[in-house]
Amino acid sequence: MSNRSGRDPLGLRRAMSDRLLQALIAAMALLACLGFAAARGVDALGERWRLGAEAAVTIQVPDPTRTRIALALGVLATLPEVADANPVDPERLAELLRPWLGEQPNLTLPGVIEVQLRNLDADVALIGDRVAEAVPGAVTEAHGLWVGRLAALAAAVQGVAYAALLLVGLIAVAVVAVATRAALAARQESVAVLHQLGATDREIAGRFARRAMVLAVCGGVVGVVVAVPAFFLLARLAQPFGAEVTAESLAGLPWGSLPWRDIATVPLIAGAIGWVTAQSVVRVWLARMP
């Protein structure tokens, strides 16, 4: 006699299509996962550029005799702003320049000292002056300008990623709203009957909201599950820019650097969007009834 329909007096299991809404929410969830990963990836890249390059200063020492190099290192060792200073091996330097200069055995290259700053706000000009006083002709070069540009680029890309996430959220709201309105249209008479029998707006809207939430959470989970192979595929596409990635080295992918906490919230956010949107749509519709 009484069956499952007793717990679903509006027949929303049929009126609110599970396949289409779930598939659309899954697609939105996949895009959200990719957006979170992109935002996190760009953030990490920007941070690496900032730490790796902004903290680095190079000092060129013309006529790089052992004495002059040692003198420059000695001055740097006395400066509190300097965390570390190491001369670049002349052979490595020649190797780095070979693509541009070719084989030039008679060309005297300047000595290069790589300096890691302890404090990113350190006055690089002052460091350069102190070294130049001790070692005439030494030139200090900081990388602040291009690092600043790279950081601005990273911030812009990150902003685009967050804007895309916002857009995905808005589209998800629109999708749930359209599905809810379609279900309302299909169950108009049933809603009116429940209303006349004394069901409150909260009870009626709650039925739609629970259905939308369940579908959205399921769609969100599907999106997250699909995102995992998508991450692997993207990592393979990015192979030329990083470490080698093969199917055998799946475990070697930078899984730990992915924003798992953000990704785990995607189904929950989808569920919240489904619940709030359905509640709003149904309550606005019910407000027209006496």
Binding site: G6, P9, V193, L197
Partner: peptide
């Protein structure tokens, strides 16, 4: 809604919910 729950109504067009059984319609 509180008032409506104290009132029983038989509509001219009956308004039974088509997707529910007779039992579930009466149980509403």
């Amino acid at each position: 809604p509180v008032l409506r729950r104290k009132i029983g109504v038989v509509h001219q067009d009956l308004r039974l919910l088509p997707h529910l059984s007779t039992f579930d319609n009466v149980a509403l």
